[in-house]
Nucleic acid binder design. Structure first.
Lengths: 198, 198
DNA sequence: TATAAAACAGACAGGTCTGTATATTTGTCA
DNA sequence: TGACAAATATACAGACCTGTCTGTTTTATA
């Protein structure tokens, strides 16, 4: 049951992601979604609110996609962690979200356009990233890796680095680079601390 | 000998970096630099050209700053490599470029706003990143580390990850996280390959 | 089918944007 | 001082932007 509101947010997300937030006018979103202007302003107080709704949709959709990819890749928590980078590669190659291609991370882009840390869009971006770290930390715990929170932060940093590199330099292979680095760091964590307490 | 053109580019860089490219109007750049509009259009064909000039200045200035920080940190190539992350921390804390604070990487931001890979600003961003990788690879060679190009790509990826994390999540400590990761990866490179051929 | 809510079309106000035109002032150098 | 180049102030065109207003048509529900 797709409402007019859903059409609007869906189209907005697509255009904001591809062309940027400030560069995308409301008229274009209305034209491509086939929704009337008054309908938009009945559902949203302003363009800013539409931006936030689009980012919320993106957060939900991206994390669902990533977690599904990782969960279908393997049942073993450690392999599941490493499979994040295979999922990233799929994304970088434009095969993850139909109709979208790869234009970097919508939240890194949002933080770039709305540089002020207090801006709602920037805060939403920070939350999105934190949620992913939380998920990685949970997997690290399941894998009984030492210092799971610390390792989760490391893996998240690798993910961000891969995204930025893949986008700015047009290098989808950054996903594999990051994967290799992750393997080294996980092994180091196991060896350096309490992995094998034999 | 600061020309009017220099004033213009300097002010443009500052405002573009803080507020974004599309969000910064020409009138504001003119007001803050105290330059007349006709003077701008005598030096630049369009706003886009001013954006490119600002990014070129940023490329030059940022790389000079980073290399100077690294070179003054240590004469040993390996320690010099690691000192990149101390420099990043300085930057993240807003102590690197006076009057600018930290609003992420101007080139990641530019790639975000100008998503098209063919856009001149996006291409300039890719070039900037490549130049830094080249510098890191040179240091890896000086340090006689195995597979210097590969390691340079890894260190560069850590740098991008630290920048994105520090900016989006407001976590300057990402610099130290990345530094620790770099130490592990360098040691692994030495052990895994031909570091100690004894 | 009757009624009410939702979405529609389209004009429009008021502001901002880039870029241009014109005429005046400033600065430099011989 | 005189001549010439550079920079200035100011107005303006034309496009685009967000958000509002009015009135009509569609859609869902009872």
């Amino acid at each position: 049951m797709k409402s007019r509101r859903d059409d609007l947010v869906e189209t907005a997300l697509k255009l904001f992601y591809i062309h940027g937030f400030n560069a995308t006018g409301i008229d274009r979103i209305l034209a491509e979604s086939g929704v009337a202007k008054m309908t938009l302003y009945k559902h949203f107080r302003s363009k800013d609110e539409l931006i936030l709704a689009a980012l919320q949709l993106r957060d939900e959709r991206f994390r669902n996609w990533l977690m599904a990819e990782m969960e279908k890749a393997s049942a073993d928590p450690e392999e599941r962690l490493l499979s994040m980078f295979s999922a990233l590669e799929t994304w970088f190659l434009g095969k993850a979200f139909k109709g979208l291609g790869f234009s970097g991370c919508a939240f890194i882009n949002a933080a770039g356009e709305f540089g002020d840390q207090a801006h709602p869009a920037h805060r939403l971006a920070a939350e999105h990233k934190r949620r992913i770290v939380d998920y990685l930390a949970e997997l690290c715990r399941q894998a009984e890796l030492p210092e799971p929170e610390k390792l989760a932060e490391q893996l998240a940093l690798l993910k961000e680095g891969a995204i930025a590199t893949a986008h700015v330099r047009n290098m989808p292979e950054a996903a594999r680079t990051a994967e290799k680095m992750a393997r080294v760091l996980i092994e180091s964590a196991k060896a350096g601390d309490g992995g094998s307490a034999t």
